[in-house]
Design a protein around this nucleic acid. Structure first.
Lengths: 352, 352
DNA sequence: GCGAGAGGTGAGAGCGCTCCCAGATATCAT
DNA sequence: ATGATATCTGGGAGCGCTCTCACCTCTCGC
């Protein structure tokens, strides 16, 4: 555990002023000083001004730990990312989410505590942390089918918002589960519809890992438009370029006559593109290709640039934070905020 | 104190057990219980076991706020990223750094508070936070020439480690400044050396923004091997694919006879690659190209795959955290940890 | 001019924890 | 046994803050 460090006072750090000293300097009581520091209602202007001045002169900043101790409010929320490699480091996905969250949170003076889960044992550590009452709420990401986190959070009564539609059994009907997701299914439909409008008839798809709802939802969107399609036109990838390439190879072997591909992520599309070229297929002439995500650094820089389905990832992050904050603000009605589906949009470039 | 409505208690959250209740259940004093919970030296095994059992039964978790209040230790460190767009969202750079940091920090039971700076006013907010004593130390990233953050941190006596060599005047000789950087100069030399060994003689370079040391150091490395090169062979980019492309266009206009390019980042290299192809130059036959960073999702997926200089970003993050923790552990000798330069390495693919 | 009410203010009690110090107990030599 | 020493243990004092509640001012209406 922690090292028995005796009063880890930093060298050179003067003792920070306390409310007490502010009060003294302003010639008021600690209670009055506190009132001024927080909101300041019910204090005569004259005194209020005095206190403000004392605060300035002393450079007072409230001690959050002391405040938390009595208010039980941490002004901090946890962002838990349970991403086993794959996407986290190939997409800027993650960073964009964080940015949206950061914006919303700091506007409300909340801090963001980032918890990365990489191995099984991390779950325990994170669970302990969430149960420890160090944060007021949690934003959970990239949950796979049977992720223990939401249940952990619920058990300790920690308000939670999930990124991406949860897919475990029963999640469907669980009113307590609040999540933000983009319209994966609608986006996929848009992609396929676009390929169709180009006159393509043998449209294949490369899916993400099918234990994630974002993958299955996109596949469902594809099937919405191609209800009785040949199963040979469907191959499973893993959201990486490599996986996309492998899936493409499979598809080409099974249906050399395919004339379009909808890849469920730009990263996979970039892998597919490579394989297509290696097989001498021209894109988009021979095979039209549509991706998903609109990750700038991939989609705009492949050769040819990728037509893709855009989702506003930053907005999703912002939304998640907003939902959580709203819930924290009104604990009376814990069910108030409901899940949100954000729209997707077709971005035409040159691959289809 | 009566409890008509237990403060901001979350619905459904039972009141958390306190050390007091653990002590009572174990039949010892609060002090003894505390000893067992932290380290546990100086308590007889029999009692210790009793306390441990009480902890388990009650599901006790220490209240960090209370602990912080007395120990002045937060078990939390701030990670400040002051990255105006550019790199943050095109490279997985950032995520990898965070991963390294996260690993090291969580091993030492420290939390990571992430602070993103996007606009000028954010500096004030972050400065206030750092001064607020909420964290025990800070990891600072992507500082540009006259970033106010290090000075802020120093003023409040907050131990700090910087990612990337600081470049402001005087930083050179400031022994207090601890940073971790990769061997940018050596890496650049390696890149140019490699191009030379291929027989190239008209080697151009695309630099990053020259207000960052990572850019200037790489340029210095280039100049080490080409001391009296034609200035027309040097163009400034901005670490984005777009910027790399623009720089490449310039270079081609100025020196159509160039036969090699060293781009100071993979992202810029990918942009340059595009422009080269658009101008009908074959890579590597006509123009050999070397990047920098070895960002998997870029370097491995361009056409042809990029030969580049690899730096171990995750390791850098880990190192930064380790340095900071070490410094926190021994405040007595604040100068003990010194800056570290991590090695770089040539990764040969097909572009050179 | 006086009482009632409204509005301001301060004393003090904790929040849950750590750590100092004194006292209790056990251990060991003499 | 007896004292001296080493080892454990618990009481209690805060850390800095918020919040209740009683009190103390004013102001106003009559």
């Amino acid at each position: 555990m922690a090292q028995p460090q005796p009063k880890a006072q930093q060298a050179g750090a003067l003792p920070r002023p306390t409310l007490e000293s502010v009060a003294e300097r302003a010639g008021v009581s600690r209670a009055t000083a506190s009132r001024v520091v927080n909101g300041g209602t019910g204090v005569r202007e004259a005194l209020r001004e005095k206190v403000r001045q004392a605060v300035d002169e002393l450079g007072y900043a409230p001690n959050l730990a002391a405040r938390t101790l009595v208010t039980r409010r941490n002004q901090a929320i946890a962002v838990v990312v349970a991403e086993p490699e794959s996407r986290l480091f190939s997409d800027p996905f993650f960073a964009q989410h964080l940015r949206g969250i950061s914006r919303e949170l700091s506007a409300a003076d909340n801090q963001m505590v980032l918890l990365l889960i990489e191995a099984q044992q991390d779950y325990e550590r994170v669970g302990r942390y969430l149960a420890g009452g160090h944060v007021d709420g949690a934003l959970l990401f990239s949950l796979h089918r049977s992720d223990p986190l939401p249940e952990m959070a619920r058990r300790v009564g920690l308000p939670t918002v999930i990124g991406g539609r949860p897919g475990w059994p029963g999640a469907e009907s669980d009113r307590e589960l609040v999540y933000v997701d983009s319209d994966n299914r609608g986006g996929a439909r848009m992609a396929v519809q676009h390929l169709r409008s180009l006159g393509r008839t043998r449209i294949a798809t490369i899916t993400g890992p099918l234990d994630q709802t974002s993958s299955t939802d996109r596949l469902d969107g594809y099937r919405d438009l191609i209800p009785d399609g040949d199963p040979a036109l469907i191959a499973e990838g893993d959201f990486t370029p490599d996986g996309g390439g492998r899936a493409m190879t499979e598809l080409l072997a099974r249906r050399p006559d395919l004339d379009a591909v909808f890849a469920a992520s730009d990263a996979m599309a970039s892998g597919a593109l490579r394989v297509l070229r290696a097989h001498g297929r021209r894109v988009p002439e021979d095979v039209a290709l549509v991706g998903f995500d609109d990750v700038e650094s991939i989609a705009a820089w492949t050769e040819p640039p990728l037509t893709t389905i855009r989702q506003d990832i930053e907005e999703m992050g912002r939304l998640m934070a907003r939902l959580l904050l709203r819930r924290l603000a009104s604990p009376a009605q814990p069910l108030a905020p409901t899940s949100v589906i954000t729209p997707t949009q077709l971005v035409r470039r040159e691959s289809a």
